[in-house]
Simulated scan of single mutants.
Amino acid sequence: MQFELQILGSASATPMTGRHPTAQLLAVGEGRYLIDCGEGTQWRLLEHRRRLSSLRVIFISHLHGDHYFGLFGLLGTLHLQGRQEPLLIVGPPGLDLVLTTQAMHSGVQYGFNLTFVPVDTEAHALVYEDALVRVSTLPMRHRVPCCGYLFEEQPRRDRLVKESLPPGLSPAELAQLAQGHDLPANPATGRPALAHAAVSTPAAPPRRYAFCSDTLYTPALAELVRGADLLYHEATFLEELRERAAQTHHSTAAQAAELACAAGVGLLLIGHFSSRYKQLTAHLAEAQAIFPNTELATEGLVVAV
Results as ranks from 00 to 15, higher is better:
Gln2Val: 14
Glu4Val: 02
Gly9Glu: 09
Ser12Thr: 11
Ser12Leu: 14
Ser12Phe: 15
Arg19Pro: 07
His20Ala: 14
His20Cys: 12
Val28Ala: 13
Gly29Ile: 08
Glu39Tyr: 14
Glu39Lys: 13
Trp43Ser: 13
Arg44Ala: 15
Arg50Cys: 14
Val57Asp: 08
Ile60Asp: 03
His67Cys: 14
Gly70Trp: 09
Leu71Glu: 08
Leu71Phe: 06
Phe72His: 12
Gly76Pro: 08
His79Val: 07
Glu85Ala: 15
Val90Pro: 09
Pro92Gly: 08
Leu97Gln: 12
Val98Arg: 04
Leu99Ile: 11
Thr101Met: 02
Gln102Phe: 13
His105Asn: 02
Gly107Ile: 03
Phe112Gly: 05
Thr115Ile: 04
Tyr128Arg: 06
Ala131Tyr: 09
Arg134Lys: 13
Thr137Trp: 06
Thr137Val: 09
Val144Arg: 02
Gly148His: 01
Tyr149Cys: 02
Phe151Trp: 05
Arg159Ala: 14
Lys162Ala: 14
Pro166Asp: 08
Pro167Lys: 10
Leu169Trp: 02
Leu174Met: 13
Ala175Cys: 08
Gln176Lys: 10
Gln176Asn: 07
His181Gln: 11
Arg191Val: 11
Ala193Asp: 08
Ala198Val: 02
Ala198Trp: 03
Ala198Arg: 07
Pro205Val: 10
Arg208Gly: 05
Ser213Pro: 04
Asp214Phe: 15
Pro219Leu: 03
Ala220Ser: 15
Gly227Asp: 05
His233Tyr: 09
Ala235Asp: 05
Phe237Leu: 10
Leu238Met: 11
Ala245Pro: 08
Ala246His: 09
Thr248Leu: 12
His250Ile: 01
Ala256Met: 02
Glu258Asp: 04
Ala263Phe: 00
Ser274Gly: 12
Ser274Asp: 15
Ala282Asp: 09
Gln288Pro: 06
Ala289Leu: 05
Ile290Thr: 11
Ile290Ser: 03
Asn293Thr: 11
Glu295Thr: 05
Ala297Ser: 12
Thr298Phe: 08
Leu301His: 04
Val302Ala: 06
Val305Thr: 01
